[in-house]
Design a binder for these strands. Structure first.
Lengths: 342, 342
DNA sequence: TGTTAGCACTCGACATCATTGAGTGCTAAC
DNA sequence: GTTAGCACTCAATGATGTCGAGTGCTAACA
């Protein structure tokens, strides 16, 4: 038994209605609101078939039907295939980024807020990872007589800093000379290459040598920190708008997941190359999120995925709308990166 | 009618019990668990008095009594007066900060996590404000041929950066010269002084002049951004552990407040000079937090308050314990600042 | 004058029970 | 293949009764 066109229409009607109301939908509802040419009895037969096929679940015997993850999957695939994901709200989103924020962290925080208020779901925004960053410039800035600030400029426009102890005093000129030397030696290399270059230095136990190894160590830390992007979460409390989370226990476990950023990052990492991903219920792989869906879109610089924006909500999510908004947001962020790069 | 010693003991017993159980406490409970030498009838008389005095509320006529904010206030004042706030968990907190985090933002985020997991309430940690920062060093680091990264080192060890457009090309040496000039001119000044110095420059429409004014503008932004500290929130979902928030509507409004960081910052700003503050229920001034309390402690560098750590929980909070933990956390953060300063 | 025992009263919490209504599955007729 | 009809199921709702914790008051006691 396959799923013919009429079955599909009915399924779609059920999903649409359930997304709107969160109430199990019965045969009469469909017959009255969507398929007026069919009687409820006919619908019942079809629904019975759809249940057998695994597209519908029945909370209990005398309740209406509820779409299963499999149904949402079909629904979304259809959506994606049709390529109907228009970049909605383009203008309104752009408006939110008028005042150029200088720091990436502000940008992703802001983006998460905007996204959550547009969708009414919980928003996740991941900043660019830094694995492939290349060094452009290295500079030591004197802080006190015995310490200096190490600034590493990379091509991401991103920059990291740390206070490095300079054994004994070292004057401005000396620091400057070292900076030039380091820049010469390291520029164009990735962070891990740079670290290797520094570590490979001959072991002369001089002050300078000690400083270099401290720098190498620091680069290692930066690498580690940057290997995972930063994450901003917006609208965590939005989930409580939905009746499926009026159970406090459920809400709590959901919110707890939001607080462990590692899990979320891992989640956003998967399939990061895809322009869009939709993970429905169990597909998220996180037990606490079994009746949530995660929709993500990537943003890019050139051809390379830089980061991911996503939305988490109940499985009965307004997929079409969310995909549209995510697309717009992704494009906006891509554009932002572009112009930062200049 | 005053509040004699026995009344106070009874009130304290009621508060202690209610903090533990969240169940309105009746006269028999007190007579059995706390004041075994008195009968429940006597306790009842005293409780009746205490209610009349405004220290107790009665949810409904045949229920036990619940402490009013006024009661908590008395309780806490007593606690504070006795100076019994020992820095608890000193060691365990110190252990959490073993691996020195380099960036202030990581530190406050981490602190919020630790604080929330120790107290089981929601934690707030505010980073140092930067109003009174003094410039130590200014450096322009070349990024591309037409832009440079501006790095300003201040005495907070804190540093801000931005990409500045350099009109036309400018070689490394030129940037370096400008950096030295700026450092000479600005070091020792506060940010706002520095901005004034730059803005006061004669209007020569040269490239350099344009760059300087861009720098001045940037300093202005930094000032604005830094005027409010950064805020980290930890354990937002902890509030759901408490029965008073098993009502989803309440939980939602609480969590919504947590998402508007401005309000929280404002809250933490008040009385920032105090070593400790305790705001109970309505005293917070935020309607959504009427049955929450906010306890804060400050951390310092020298004699100056740098930032604030705080805990939000239900009014029936374990004030003693929380104050102890906050104190320890504050001291730990102060120490951290100290050693960063070196 | 303060303390206590006793007692009537109140009221939320909880369990029970009947009612209602939405929805199904099945069958027979169209 | 579609539809009307009907019996059946079951969650939700609301009424009812009981239970128990807790109070306030009074009278007796030390």
């Amino acid at each position: 038994m396959g799923i013919d066109e009429r079955k599909f229409r009915i399924l779609q009607a059920i999903i649409d209605d359930y997304i709107l109301t969160a109430i199990p939908v019965g045969s009469r509802t469909i017959s009255k609101k969507y398929e007026t040419s069919l009687s409820s009895a006919t619908i019942r037969n079809e629904m019975s078939d759809l249940e057998e096929l695994g597209y519908l679940d029945q909370p209990h015997v005398s309740a209406g039907r509820v779409p299963s993850p499999k149904a949402y999957r079909l629904y979304v695939d259809q959506l994606l295939q049709q390529g109907k994901i228009l970049a909605a709200n383009q203008e309104s989103i752009r408006a939110h980024f008028q005042d150029r924020a200088r720091q990436m962290e502000d940008v992703i925080g802001h983006a998460a807020q905007v996204l959550s208020s547009l969708t009414h779901y919980t928003a996740l925004v991941m900043s660019p990872k830094g694995t492939e960053l290349r060094v452009r410039n290295v500079q030591l800035v004197p802080v006190s007589s015995s310490s200096a600030l190490l600034v590493i400029v990379t091509d991401g426009g991103i920059m990291r800093d740390a206070v490095i102890r300079v054994g004994g005093e070292m004057d401005v000129e000396a620091l400057y000379a070292i900076s030039r030397m380091l820049t010469d030696r390291l520029s164009g290399r990735t962070l891990s290459e740079a670290r290797q270059v520094l570590s490979g230095e001959p072991e002369e136990a001089s002050r300078r040598q000690q400083m270099l190894s401290e720098i190498a160590e620091f680069i290692g830390e930066v690498e580690k920190q940057n290997a995972v992007g930063k994450l901003a979460v917006g609208g965590s409390s939005n989930i409580l708008n939905f009746p499926e989370y009026s159970d406090v226990e459920k809400a709590k476990s959901f919110l707890s997941v939001l607080e462990t950023k590692e899990k979320l990052l891992q989640l956003l990492e998967q399939n990061r190359e895809m322009a869009f991903t939709v993970r429905i219920g169990p597909e998220t792989g996180i037990p606490e999120l079994v009746d949530c869906s995660l929709v993500t879109a990537s943003y890019r610089l050139g051809n390379q995925t830089q980061g991911t924006v996503g939305v988490i909500g109940p499985t009965r999510m307004q997929y079409g709308q969310v995909l549209g908004i995510l697309r717009a947001m992704g494009e906006q962020l891509s554009r932002l990166l572009e112009q930062d790069k200049e």
